Simulated scan of single mutants.
Amino acid sequence: MAKLELIATAAFGLEAVVAHELKQLGYNNTKVENGRVTFVANEQAICHTNLWLRSAERVLLKVGEFKATTFEELFQQTKALPWTELLPVDANFPVEGKSIKSKLFSVSDCQAIVKKAIVEKMKEVYGLEWFTETGPKFTVEVALLKDVVTLTIDTSGAGLHKRGYRKLTGKAPIKETLAAAMVMLSYWNADRILLDPLCGTGTIPIEAALIGQNIAPGLTRNFAAEEWPWIPKKIWQEQRRAAHKEARYDLPLKIIGSDIDKEALSMARYHAGEAGVDEFVSFQPMDVANLSTKKKYGCIICNPPYGERLKERPEVELLYQQMGKAFLPLDTWSYYIITSNTDFEKHFGKKADKKRKVYNGRIRCDYYQYFGPRPPKRNESPEQDK
């Protein structure tokens, strides 16, 4: 098949992380915009990126883009696109939609018109008056932004954050994609110890383990495009085999998660087992106020409570003070904390070296980054962890 235009969607603030991932995967011709990174590749890239992208939300196939201010324009320009090159005669193609700052603001009407336009195109090409839609799923999205229509087909199915290991739900879990981005934005690597002293159900430590051992995050799940007839099954099989070969399953890691919630820790251990990294991640009950370690040059990465509700703020602010007292004496460590609390630095007791605006779902947060000294090379210092 000819070159395809693909879109890796991203949470706001993580577009550059997704673009960097794509570059690492070999896709250099990228265009970064709010909430998405566009790149050009072939059908193999649909398999490759779905399997490997850690911080992206979905991979979409872009069918077309045009300006439309009337329903007639929307209908005619949608119909003109090459739908039958992508949708088989039995395709199940629901249409989803969204509209922002556009004259065509009725999402339901836009969805209906796009659906009708695709059906009319299929009638002309396939010579049928009715379609069963009993075949593979091709979820179409019509997205309008300032009167520009973008039509895409979702290749992922369930969002890419659904790795398959997190089957139990704890209190305020962080998305796997955001957790992975937090690790990738840190200076942690597999040679260093990583600690999440507020680990909850274990998402940050587990994502770190997958990164450390170079395990493709989508390796054990399925994707919508696996059922598409124009992507040979052989490509998916080859991509999965290649991913298995690239994984470093036996690479030793030093990753620890701790929390005061024993039920959450039980879930964390279960999730680590489901992810296949339980041998390399340990979980232990501990109050963050009691944190102490003789280890050197480690990284703390955590997602503490934010205190979004007014009545929770005094307790959360006290927690931040306890974190500061526990973290700051670790003068060879780096620490990375995400929170929506704008007074975090004041309560923590130190201004961050760097902070980055990100979104945890719909919550606007800052990712506070405190950089410790660079670890010495192993042959230079006996203090570095063995």
Rank of each mutant, 00 (worst) to 15 (best):
T220R: 14
T78G: 06
A91H: 10
M182V: 01
G361E: 04
F371R: 10
E96D: 10
I215C: 10
T152D: 05
N34E: 02
G307C: 00
K254V: 01
D366S: 11
W230L: 15
T38C: 13
T49F: 06
D154G: 11
Q213S: 06
V183Y: 07
E274F: 07
Y359F: 15
G26M: 04
G127N: 14
A80G: 15
D353Y: 05
R362L: 05
G298T: 01
V148A: 03
R356G: 00
R313H: 00
L144K: 07
P329A: 07
F66L: 05
A224P: 02
L81S: 11
S99D: 02
I174T: 13
T152M: 05
L178I: 14
Y165E: 11
Q239D: 09
R241H: 10
R378E: 11
T78I: 08
G157I: 04
T70R: 06
T134I: 11
T177V: 05
P197G: 10
E85S: 15
C47E: 04
E43C: 04
K121D: 08
T69W: 01
K23F: 02
K350R: 15
A242W: 04
L319K: 00
L265E: 14
V148T: 13
E57T: 14
L61R: 09
P173V: 08
F66K: 09
L195F: 07
E308N: 02
P376M: 05
D259K: 06
Q321P: 00
K23W: 06
G164R: 14
W230N: 15
F327T: 03
I153R: 14
M286H: 07
R221E: 11
Y126M: 10
A19G: 07
A180K: 05
I193R: 04
P285C: 04
R309E: 00
S292G: 02
K386H: 09
I100T: 07
I7T: 02
A352I: 13
V316E: 01
T30S: 04
L87S: 11
L160A: 09
L51Q: 12
N303R: 06
L86G: 05
Q111R: 13
I231V: 13
G361W: 03
W228Y: 10
K121S: 15
K295R: 13
L6V: 02
L291D: 06
K233L: 14
S186V: 06
L330P: 01
L195D: 09
K346A: 01
S258Q: 09
V125S: 15
W52F: 10
L265G: 14
G164D: 14
A243C: 12
E141P: 00
A352L: 05
E43V: 01
I235F: 08
S258I: 05
G202I: 15
P304S: 04
T339L: 07
P173K: 14
V32K: 01
Q284F: 11
E380N: 13
Q322G: 00
M1Y: 09
S381H: 05
P205C: 14
G276I: 03
A179M: 09
E15C: 05
E207T: 12
A112M: 08
D287H: 13
E129S: 15
Y336S: 06
K175M: 14
K295Y: 09
G35S: 02
M122H: 10
K103Y: 03
I231K: 14
I204A: 11
V142P: 13
L86S: 08
R240W: 06
A208F: 09
P82S: 11
T339R: 05
S266W: 02
A224C: 12
K350C: 02
E65M: 08
I118S: 15
R356V: 15
A10C: 05
E263C: 00
L6N: 03
V358W: 03
